[in-house]
């Protein structure tokens, strides 16, 4: 058997796994309010055809956390509330690859799934206890805990700190 046939076989098995996905996706509820985040790509769990759609309630159900940090774009230390990126990837069964994130202002950046760790970045939707509007870099802003981890205070993480985020595509 030639190696190419092996790859094909593996791919076939993988596709088989994906076909089994909708069954597993039964665990994720459907959004009832206005959808403000669309996740697509290689997801193990979805709530729409090949996609996971979130309104603010559904996202908040993933277990919000609060981090306090300063950023290079704001003055002073602020409190940010949101869902850890890890909670999202866990919920959607994203285990590797890259998260291609896009913003309302057409900014786009690729965040490796490996960034999704405990004490890692959060998808913030409140700043200082108030929901963030588009003018305030809402509806979602990927915030790394810059103050508590100096590794995050670099251009790489600054560039990944996408605001006005509304779409994520998981790319393997």
């Amino acid at each position: 058997m030639r190696p190419a046939s092996v790859s094909r076989l593996v791919m076939a098995l993988a596709i088989g796994g994906l076909l089994a996905g909708p069954v597993a996706a039964e665990g994720l509820a459907r959004p009832e309010g206005e959808v403000f985040l669309t996740v697509s790509g290689d997801l193990a769990t979805t709530n729409a055809p090949e996609m996971a759609l979130f309104d603010s309630a559904l996202l908040a159900s993933l277990g919000p956390v609060e981090i306090r940090t300063s950023t290079i774009w704001t003055e002073g230390v602020h409190s940010f509330t949101g869902i850890p990126l890890k909670a999202l990837t866990d919920a959607l069964g994203v285990v590797g690859g890259t998260l291609r994130m896009s913003a309302i202002n057409d900014y786009m950046v690729e965040v490796p799934v490996s960034d999704a760790i405990d004490e890692g970045p959060i998808l913030a939707y409140e700043m200082d206890g108030k929901p963030m509007s588009v003018r305030d870099k809402g509806p979602l802003w990927l915030i790394y805990p810059f103050d508590s981890n100096s590794d995050y205070r670099s251009e790489v993480y600054y560039s990944r700190s996408i605001w006005q985020l509304d779409r994520i595509e998981a790319v393997n």
Binding site: W73, T74, E75, I104, V134, K137
Partner: peptide
Amino acid sequence: QRFDVFYSRMITLQLSPV
């Protein structure tokens, strides 16, 4: 939305130490 985006950009430019 475009207004908000532009507005947000301006705030960022005005506030960010960068």
